[in-house]
Structures are given as structure tokens and as C-alpha cells.
Nucleic acid binder design. Structure first.
Lengths: 327, 327
DNA sequence: GTGAAAGCGCTAACAT
DNA sequence: ATGTTAGCGCTTTCAC
């Protein structure tokens, strides 16, 4: 059923029906009622594809995540979904599998679908991806980080400040021989920023330079035992793991080895995973408002859609240091 | 840039360019090359919206989940995404928040977008939702369960068989006084089917009728302590919790109370959550191939798109009983 | 407040 | 193998 059928049924032109759909009060009250019942009578459902083509607004926003199976990345998608639902926007989700080429292909496809806005995870997009996006001139939000060379907008946390907060906490507890464990991949700029903040803050606080270790994969628990051996060998008192999975692995490895936490080794993670609060001793960690990240990004996109003159933003959301039993 | 611009640049009609895009070998080899460079020269990107409108195929599949933040529901989305990527399909995700009205609204919106196929979570759709879907005559897959009154296709696990498997396992271990805890909501037919399978199997095995308890929310750990009190009061030897969160809550509550597991109380869950393997004692549970559920649903949709004559399927995927330390 | 005409960018069906 | 014509279902612009 097309808009014209509704018009015929109501004894009006297709145009008036279209107006009713978008600006009901531009149609006379009796005609509003006529159209309403005509729509019900013929069982009309607007073709959003045709609407989008004609109006050049698709009412779709896209979000790209490495994987949706990881709650860390699923939470912002939920936030985005909740943010745009009321406005009648739908969410297109693309999974890149941490692959830049896949990301690029998806961005191209989404632009082809004429999405009204796009959200990207992180800030490590390929040059070609950035170029495509800048050329398309649509609102784009980079999530998690707020880099200096933004594509357009960014909504993230101050990763360096996270490292700082943990260093200050360790110092306040009296730990002096610190260590930091990060994810070694070059693309993981979040991990790098957190480490840097930790190191700089330790230096400012007059502590000896922390031991720096790294692991191959972000969520690698298997490497924890050798990590613990290394930490003990160097007489480390407190370790900052740039990720909860890793921190939990370290806690479990310590227990197996009979290392007392936090007496012999204090541990802090980042992420506030569900597990962090459930293990014993409960993990000190940093809560990052993942859901809010997506929610704010979505709200910003809606604001941009509503007002074409609005510019990009660089928004930083507060994290929270959750001091528990491991430090 | 439109397809006509490419045609002009290549000295050919728009139609030939369109043909090249979809059936390259229907275009002569020299012209293929001409079009290829013309596309690059003008920086052409097909408008998938216009394509979809004209061809009546959007190359979009939609999936509806209660919440994407729960890995249980995110995993099938990842499977779907992986299944359809190669074929050039995109995934539209809708979150219903366990609300039938929200589900109905989303189904309507997705139909308006002329999605080529749709995946729904569970089988408790409202009558209006079912009617819309049947009227639209597009491939639909109900996920997780394979009900008798399917809308179209279904890909799921045999929930009753899960209950059966746990009952048999308990019986084999020599437990006689059993209990089952389920989610009380009327809409949760999965939970109900698992309980029923458990009860029927217990009867067949000649065991006394299991104690039946219920909780208000599926992932409610807070109710665990009173649940344990109730179980002990009735002298229950083994409890089947229809969900891992609940089972883990019970295990933790037992530990706090000094109840030995499995000596005093054996526990089994369903879901194979990450936590299940990590707690001590490790939880006996049922692994449901969540990712594969979405993957198979996606593959089925692609098959249906490729061959209009293909009919719906009712597919059941195998689960796996993971016997660990709590039983 | 309402209608007519033109067009969004593409493909289907028919030509040649 | 290629081109022409006529839409897909809607909105935009400009009339009245």
C-alpha cells in the first residue's frame, strides 16, 4: 500500500497525507481524522526506504565495534539504541573483528546506505577510512578516546587520568615499587595512554620508575603466572593491569602460588567487569561508564541532526576508581 | 555522484554500469575496464537506498534482542553478523527491553525499512506482531526455541531435553531429593520448558516429585540466600537452576552459610557463563551454542534469499552438559 | 490548507 | 552486449 492509496481513500492528495505524517498540524483537523482512518482502512505502512531516498535522511545511525560479543563493546550499542529509539532512528551494527580493512569496508557500505551518523570504536582508523568519512560530511563520533586529531566528534574517557588515579591511589597506600602491565599491540592507544598516565604520575609523586611489562592479547589470562613470577622477582609491591581480565588472572595466579593480596602484592585493574566484584579478594578497578558512552554519543548525533549548524564536540565522561580489597 | 555520471565518463549508458555492478560478465571485457576506471575517476559510491527501492531488496537483515548488553543475546548477533557479511548484507539491531509493545513497534519499523529477513528472540511475540510478520511474507527466524506454532522458521535448542539431561545426571550421581528453580514470568517459555523436561524426566526415573521454586527476575542473585534456606529446609540434595546467574548465586550463598557443595547440596545451572568455570567449585552447567544459533539463522536467511522457493526450517542445535565440581 | 509537477538514484522489462 | 522507457514510493518546490 502506497501513500497515494491512502490519499484516494481519504479523498485527498498523496501530498496532504505526507504532510500529515510529518507535520500533522499543517493539515486541517477534519482531514487529520480522515487520513487516520484511511491509513487504518488500507493498512498503510510508510516505505522508509523511499522516504529516505526522497528526503535524503535515512533515520539510521551506524555503530562499528570490534565485536559485539564482548560486553565492553555491547554496552555502548545498548546506550546508542536507547538514545535514538524515541526519535525513530534505527541502529545498524557492524563488527570489524579488530581489522582495519574490515572497518574500512563497513564504513563504505554504511555510507552507501546513507546513514545519518556514524559511531566508531577507538581512534585508530586507517587513513582511507578517515578520508571517506571526512568527504561524506556526516556527523561522526569516535568512542572511548578523545584524540587530538579527531575525525569529527569524540566521546571518551581521559585514559591518561585513569593511570594517574591508580598511581595516586597506590602512592597513598604507601606502595613504592610499582609495575604496570599493558597490551602490547601498537593499535591499542587506550592501553598506551593509561600506561603513560601511570608512569608520569609515578614520576611526579617521586616514586622509582615502575616496572613495565606487556602481554600479547588484551584478555590473556594464560600469561598471568609468568607475569606474577616476574613481578615477585623484581620485588614489586603493587601492579596496575590495564584491563580487568589480566588483573583477575594475576589475582588467581597469586592465590595458586600462595602470594598474599594485597600484603605481598597489590593489584588494580580497569573495566569494572562483573567478575571484578565477585572474586575474593574483590578487585580494585576503574569503572568506565560504557553504557553512557554510547548514550551520550547517540544524544549528540540527535542534536546534530536537529540542528545542522551545531559543530562537533570533544566530550569526556568521568570514570570512577573503585577501591576494593586487592589494594 | 550518480550511476549516470559514471556512464557518461565511460561513454556508456547508466544501465550498462548497473549491469557491471551486479553481473560484471554480462559486460564486454573492454567496457568492464572503462567502467572500472570511470568509477574511480568520479569517486562513485552506489546509493544502496535507491538500489533497494528499485530492486525491492534491501540487503539488510534485522535482529531483535531483549538487550544487547547481555552476552547471551549479543553472541547470536555476532554470529548473524559473521554469517551475512560476505554476502554484503548489513545487520539492523533492535532492543526490546523484554517489552512486547516495544517489540511490536520495532517489527513495524523494520518492515517499513523493507528488511529482507528478520530474527526474533524467543517465541512469545504478541498476536499483532505475528500478524504483521505473516502479512509481510518475508523470511523470519525465531531464535532459542522451536515452538510448534512457528511464525516461519525457528532455530533453537530443545529446552525440555536440557531439563531431562540434568535430571538424568542427578539420578546417575545418586541424588534423589531434587529441586528446580525457575524464572516465574509467564512469557519465559524457555524456562518453563526446561523445568517441565526436568520434572517429567525425574518422574520417569522413579524419583520423588522435585521441589519447585521460582524467582521474580531471571538474573536475580539477591534471592539466592532465602532460596538456599528453603532448599535445606526440605532436605534437597540437588538443585537445578534454570540459569547460571541463579546457580552461581546459590553456590555463593551456600559458601557463606557453610554448606558443602556438592556433599550437602549439588547445583547445576544453564548457560555456560564465563563465571561458571571460574568460581570454586566450578559450576556444572549446560553450554548452549549461542553464537552458532545466530550463525545458523543467518545462513538460513541467506539460503532463503538465494532461492525464493525454499521453505521454512525448524532447526535444533545440540547443547552440551558440562559436568564440573558442583554436582 | 491543499494539489501538481518534478525528481531522489537506481533497476526491470523491453528493445535493439 | 548495450540502450530506452517507465517506474520503485516518497518528498520537494511551487503553485493556488
Amino acid at each position: 500500500m502506497r501513500i497515494e492509496d491512502v490519499g484516494r481513500e481519504a479523498g485527498l492528495s498523496a501530498q496532504t497525507v505526507s504532510r500529515f505524517l510529518h507535520f500533522p498540524d499543517q493539515v486541517s483537523t477534519p482531514n487529520q481524522e480522515r487520513i487516520r482512518s484511511a491509513i487504518a482502512a488500507v493498512g498503510y505502512r510508510p516505505n522508509l526506504l523511499a522516504m529516505a531516498l526522497a528526503s535524503n535522511r535515512s533515520r539510521v545511525v551506524a555503530i562499528l565495534v570490534p565485536t559485539i560479543a564482548n560486553p565492553v563493546h555491547a554496552a555502548p550499542v545498548q546506550g546508542l539504541s536507547d538514545a535514538v529509539r524515541e526519535a525513530g532512528y534505527q541502529v545498524l551494527v557492524g563488527t570489524t573483528g579488530y581489522d582495519a580493512a574490515a572497518e574500512q569496508a563497513l564504513v563504505g557500505a554504511f555510507l552507501g546506505r546513507r546513514v545519518d551518523g556514524m559511531i566508531l570504536t577507538g581512534a585508530a582508523q586507517s587513513h582511507a577510512t578517515r578520508a571517506m568519512l571526512k568527504g561524506a560530511a556526516l556527523p561522526v563520533v569516535q568512542l572511548w578516546e578523545v584524540p587530538a586529531d579527531r575525525i569529527d566528534s569524540a566521546v571518551g574517557v581521559r585514559n591518561a587520568a585513569i593511570g594517574e588515579a591508580v598511581a595516586r591511589h597506590f602512592a597513598a597506600r604507601g606502595y613504592r615499587r610499582l609495575a604496570v602491565v599493558r597490551h602490547a599491540a601498537a593499535g591499542d592507544t587506550r592501553s598506551a595512554a593509561r600506561e603513560l598516565g601511570f608512569l608520569e604520575s609515578a614520576a611526579e609523586l617521586g616514586l622509582p620508575p615502575p616496572l613495565r611489562l606487556s602481554v600479547d592479547r588484551p584478555a590473556e589470562m594464560a600469561q598471568a603466572p609468568e607475569l606474577v613470577a616476574e613481578l615477585l622477582l623484581h620485588g614489586v609491591e603493587a601492579v596496575f593491569c590495564v584491563g580487568d581480565q589480566l588483573a583477575i588472572g594475576v589475582v588467581l595466579a597469586c592465590q595458586r602460588r600462595g602470594v598474599a593480596i594485597p600484603a605481598q602484592l597489590a593489584v588494580a585493574g580497569v573495566g569494572d567487569s562483573d567478575l571484578a566484584a565477585l572474586i575474593t579478594p574483590a578487585l580494585t578497578t576503574v569503572r568506565i561508564p560504557r553504557y553512557e558512552l554510547g548514550l551520550e554519543a547517540g544524544r549528540h548525533l540527535l542534536a546534530r541532526f536537529a540542528d545542522r549548524h551545531l559543530g562537533p564536540v570533544a566530550m569526556e565522561i568521568d570514570f570512577e576508581l573503585l577501591i576494593r580489597e586487592t589494594s
